[in-house]
Structures are given as C-alpha cells and as structure tokens.
C-alpha cells in the first residue's frame, strides 16, 4: 500500500492568529518597529544638537505636537514590553550553575530588573528629573 499523506500548509500571513501565544510573540517582534522608529528620531536629534542651540530649541518645540506625543506613548509601551520580554529571557540564555544546582531563573531575571531600575533612576537623576 502506497503512502499518500495529507500535507497541511501553514498560512504564511495569518498563522499567528491561531493561538494567543503567537500574538504575544508577534507583539514582541513588532516592538522593533517602534523602537527602530525612535532610534531614527534619536539620529535626527543628534543632527539637530550638532546644528546649534537654535536648531535644538526648534527640535524640542517640534516634539510637542500631538502626533509626537502619540508616537512617544507607543514607543514607550514598546520599549517597556521589549525590556520585560528581554529580561525574562535572560534566565534561558544565561543559566548559572553553582556547584550542583542552577540558580533559580527568577534570580537571574530579577537581577536584570534590579540593574535596570537602578540605571534608569540614575539617568533620571542625572537628567535632573528627580
């Protein structure tokens, strides 16, 4: 008897609708769009900064448009979601074995969260926000 197996193709453009875990994954991947766009804004900021105080002041004023505000909120959500998923993954990529046992993964991710919090507070302090 010959084999005649049934091949089921995965729909390439909407496979991620099958299960919430794939939507979560795609959300993580799509953060790159907003983070990347924000990086482009940072490149523009460097250009404005190098062009002198007037240009920089104009840049700061331009940031106050409603579109810019919405963009900042989206970028902030993306940056925080990226950070969370990234720190949660550190325990998978970099397990730490001391003696026989592995350090619990939560400690590894937790240490990253702690460093993140401290670093962010330092930046906010240096920038005169707090």
């Amino acid at each position: 008897m010959s084999r005649r197996p049934l091949i089921r193709e995965l729909p390439p453009t909407r496979w991620f609708l099958r299960h919430p875990r794939y939507l979560r994954y795609m959300a993580r991947e799509v953060t790159s769009l907003f983070v990347g766009a924000y990086c482009v804004l940072l490149v523009i900021a460097m250009q404005r900064l190098s062009a002198g105080p007037v240009a920089w002041q104009e840049f700061l004023v331009a940031l106050r448009s409603p579109a810019s505000l919405v963009f900042h909120l989206a970028a902030m959500a993306a940056a925080f979601y990226h950070a969370g998923t990234w720190f949660n993954a550190t325990q998978k990529a970099m397990p730490l074995q001391i003696g026989e046992d592995f350090v619990p993964g939560a400690y590894i991710s937790g240490a990253h969260y702690l460093v993140w919090a401290v670093l962010s507070l330092v930046v906010l302090f240096v920038a005169g926000v707090i």
Partner: peptide, 18 residues
C-alpha cells in the same frame, strides 16, 4: 526566532527554547 512555544507545550519540562 525564540518564539518560546516549544517550552510552553513541552510535557517533560525540557525547555528547548533555553
């Protein structure tokens, strides 16, 4: 691309994603 689904469904807690 580190979807991580493998580890979520593994019945033996192998954690292939890691």
């Amino acid at each position: 691309t580190f979807v991580g689904a493998c580890s979520e469904v593994c019945p033996a807690q192998v954690d292939p994603a890691s």
